[in-house]
Write a protein that binds this DNA or RNA. Structure first.
Length: 442
RNA sequence: GCGGCCAUGGUGAAACGGUUAUCACAGGGGUUUGUGGUACCUCUAUUACGGGUUCGAUUCCCGUUGGCCGCCCCA
């Protein structure tokens, strides 16, 4: 009979389905924290030391913001946005990126009146309903930098330099792919030229490439379809079609980068998928042996000289920005063997025995914490053995043992975890004594 | 959005269609309730979910869900 009951219970429990993680979404568990901390610290440090101010934007924006800035015909806007109508009947979208929001904030808060350029950084989640893959999630974090209000090419170079430093600090080897896509006008002319060039070979183009011919001609240049290599060789080069100003600008950027010894490669086929880019565009890729992974792009960016005006801000407010995919940065760190110890490490571990000592322990623990000593406990555990095991795992240098007897005597045991030597001291002096011992151990 | 590969405990793996699904690690509890880095004992899976074929399915088939890879695109 009893057995039957148990079975029935087990059956009931089974009937409850645990809700699952949404596709493409991910829990970031405490075990991952060392990586996230490292990246966020590096981001904050590099941004702050170049006097960028932190920008915290809302996750939700009006849909039109993205349609107007990123471009209605882009993949991001066309099929990847989380868009819905909110209860007050407004069309809203979970931001797929932050540059549009940054531009909006710049205009809305009259930042034209501040010293230009206005430099800001962010480290926030973005949302795109794309097909998930390794390093590609529907909610992902971006670390980004924006400098709005200056057209000086040195800013382009500086931003790339900052990114370079950022990765160096994290132990990831990267290089930059650079190109200039000029102004909207020069680009339009170039695209027309490009399309008419490829049209001659229409018959030789694959289905994908035919689509590109009308949808995204620039993409023809880095097509991986068969036979494209030869066709591409005869194709017009964008750099030849740049207007004089863009050309000069790009030359300057390269000069600065050479000066700063930042490794880069020119890639005349690099185009970015968002409409607002102008002039300098770039991508950061990991330098790795198993090179042919699709998601080896860690981030990218470029100038967006016309975006502010496009969104109704002051004419001629040039700007530049970069965004890095945090999950991909972490992937690259792991890929390149950047390790963090998994166990939390502490200097002191507090062991208690019995209720009275646990009670007392609450206070002792607090005193150590206030004194700035890294200390851990396991009040939930009973046996001393288990507690010492934990102390060992967490690489504690000193274990404190407080039992019934010690509570009565007003003492506590200090155990040197390496030698196993123990001494009994007055509990009121334990903080000072332990601090001194730790200093001596280094 | 299109094409392909895959799915066994917290993790990594094993099991020619056939008895209580095996092993390691991690985790919990213990080895007469006060001493760790060893040892021993013990516990932790209706084999992703739902159907089908079969006397019998972890193993075969279909669907769903999810992951991964390529394309598209991007971070």
């Amino acid at each position: 009979m009893i057995a039957k009951n148990v079975d029935a219970k087990a059956g009931d429990r089974k009937a409850v389905k645990t809700p699952q993680l949404l596709r493409g979404f991910k829990d970031i568990l405490p075990g991952e924290e060392p990586y996230w901390n490292a990246v966020e610290d590096a981001a904050r440090n590099i941004a702050t030391s170049y006097s960028f101010g932190r920008l915290r934007l809302p996750i939700l924006e009006q849909t039109s913001l993205f349609e107007r800035s990123i471009g209605k015909a882009t993949d991001v806007v066309e099929k990847e946005m989380y868009t819905f109508v909110d209860p007050s009947n407004t069309r809203v979208t979970l931001r797929p990126e932050a540059t549009a929001g940054a531009a909006r904030a710049y205009i809305e808060h009259g930042m034209v009146n501040k010293t230009q350029p206005v430099k800001m950084w962010y480290f926030e989640p973005m949302f795109r309903h794309d097909r998930p893959q390794a390093g590609r999630y529907r909610q992902f974090y971006q670390f980004g930098l924006e400098a709005i209000g200056s057209s000086d090419p040195i800013l382009d170079a500086q931003m790339i330099l900052m990114t370079h430093r950022f990765f160096k600090g994290l132990g990831v080897e990267v290089k930059f792919l650079l190109n200039s896509i000029g102004t909207e006008e020069s680009r339009r002319e170039y695209i027309m030229e490009l399309v008419s060039y490829f049209k001659q070979f229409r018959k030789r183009l694959s289905e994908v490439d035919k689509k590109r011919l009308t949808k995204n001609p620039l993409r023809l240049l880095d097509s991986k379809e068969e036979g494209m290599d030869e066709l591409r060789d005869g194709a017009p080069q964008i750099l030849d079609w740049l207007d004089e100003d863009s050309k000069q600008h790009f030359m300057k950027v390269l000069e600065y980068l050479d000066e700063a010894e930042v490794p880069y490669e020119l890639n005349p086929y690099l185009v970015r998928g968002l409409d607002y880019y102008t002039k300098t565009v770039f991508e950061v890729v990991e330098i790795t042996d198993d090179a042919e992974r699709a998601q080896n792009s860690l981030g990218g960016g470029g100038r967006y000289d016309t975006l502010i005006e496009l969104l109704g801000g002051r004419e001629d407010t040039p700007a530049i920005g970069i965004a890095l995919g945090v999950e991909r940065v972490i992937m690259a760190m792991k890929n390149q063997g950047v390790e963090f110890s998994k166990e939390r490490e502490v200097d002191v571990f507090f062991c208690q025995l019995g209720d009275a000592s646990r009670k007392k322990g609450l206070i002792v623990f607090e005193e150590f914490r206030k004194a700035g000593v890294s200390i851990a406990e396991a009040f939930g555990k009973g046996a001393l053995k288990g507690q010492l095991e934990m102390a060992d795992k967490q690489k504690a240098k000193i274990a404190l043992i407080l039992g019934q007897k010690e509570v009565l005597d007003g003492t506590i045991i200090i155990r040197d975890m390496e030698s196993g030597a123990q001494e009994i001291v007055n509990i009121d002096k334990v903080v000072a004594i332990v601090k001194r011992q730790l200093e001596m151990m280094g």
